[in-house]
């Protein structure tokens, strides 16, 4: 087995053991909780659909964080970018009443991307022109995003007496997957999922296959040398960070367009931060990102499933332990030198 995969599997096992200890601590039987967990996620058509639904925004935010990392920037602002984009989409959707889906949906997706990108722009400018660390800028912009959206909702964007916008026009919703695969039932998984997979598959190769993509990676890796060789480093890294914001914003496709049909305060919250974990675990490959998004999607959905007997926050503990365990396993994999070929050993003798 691949050493990296082995590391992840061991990390998962370790996290599982800890999880069971916590469950025991609540005086519940780990077996019963595990059964509930399984039935609520991969054990039924509806559970699978809900898990896929939970994984969809994570694909977008995980990809977003990954794009930032390639440029050497840590986009901890995906959370705020997603909030702003979700609100923008929800609000615009209420104005697009009569538009047919083929027009409305692309328009809304573009809006989500642009809103997320725009929200990332100040952080990128601060980082690349004034050298204010992007994590600092992102933390601030996350807080501002929450406050701003709350203010806008209270200031008239929401239906009076609620914290959500009015329903979007009929042409604004992404169809549910259940319409094509009846087994998924009434779950919230929507066409946003295949869309996310297509976006991930389309974006990742750009770093190798386009000049700008390669320059982004090289700029992130050694800005000084790249500048010296004539690469417009600030523009490249700025582009990556802003695009990262846009991709995080696309996460609204899963929540607003694919699920609710309106924006509600708190919708999709947490997906931005989990995107960090997905990117770190996914290691920049398509399958890595997809599996990591599925894993954390499972944990999120599983938390809801077991909520009746243990608090769903127990699953957050589990997720945290997975992240730490994977980080440790990674160091362990790196510390053990690879096996040398016999030919080499002979050559050395």
């Amino acid at each position: 087995m691949n050493r990296r995969v082995l590391g992840v599997v061991m990390a998962l096992l370790a996290a599982m053991i800890l999880f069971e200890c916590v469950v025991l601590g609540y005086g519940e039987s780990p077996r019963a909780v595990l059964r509930m967990l399984f039935e609520g996620t991969w054990g039924s058509g509806y559970g699978i659909g809900q898990t896929l639904f939970k994984a969809t925004p994570l694909l977008f935010t995980g990809l977003a964080v990954q794009v930032g990392l390639r440029a050497g920037l840590f986009n901890i602002g995906a959370e705020g970018q997603l909030v702003v984009a979700s609100f923008a989409v929800g609000w615009l959707g209420t104005k697009l009443g009569g538009l047919p889906a083929p027009v409305a949906i692309p328009l809304l997706l573009a809006t989500a991307f642009v809103a997320g990108a725009a929200w990332a722009l100040p952080t990128a400018i601060l980082r690349l022109r004034q050298n204010v660390h992007e994590v600092l800028g992102a933390i601030l912009s996350n807080r501002i995003a929450d406050a701003l959206v709350a203010a806008l909702l209270a200031g008239g964007a929401a239906i009076k007496g609620t914290v959500h916008t009015a329903d979007m026009g009929a042409g604004c919703m992404l169809p549910r997957l259940g319409a094509f695969v009846p087994a998924l039932g009434a779950s919230a998984a929507s066409l946003a999922l295949p869309l996310a997979l297509v976006v991930v598959a389309a974006v990742l190769p750009l770093f190798r296959k386009t000049a700008i993509g390669r320059e982004i990676v090289l700029s992130g890796s050694n800005p000084t040398a790249s500048t010296a060789a004539g690469v417009p480093v600030g523009l490249r890294r700025g582009l990556a960070y802003v695009a990262s914001g846009g991709l995080a914003g696309l996460g609204a496709a899963a929540t607003v367009l694919g699920y609710k049909g309106y924006y509600e305060q708190g919708l999709g919250s947490g997906a931005g931060f989990l995107g960090l974990a997905v990117a770190l675990l996914g290691r920049g490959s398509f399958f890595g990102l997809a599996l990591a998004a599925l894993l954390f999607g499972t944990l999120q959905q599983g938390g809801l499933a077991v909520n009746a007997i243990v608090p769903k926050e127990v699953m957050d503990v589990f997720a945290g332990v997975v992240i730490v365990a994977v980080a440790i396993a990674d160091r362990w994999v790196a510390a053990v030198p690879p096996v040398k070929t016999p030919a080499a050993a002979q050559g050395a003798a």
Binding site: R214, E215, L218, S226
Partner: peptide, 28 residues
Amino acid sequence: EGLVLDATVEDNLLLGSHRDFSGPLGLL
């Protein structure tokens, strides 16, 4: 200032010139 150490020899040899090799659709 000279090298991007964790990039390949090819990328280092071409650093700053990648744009000259963009084909249709911007693909390298």
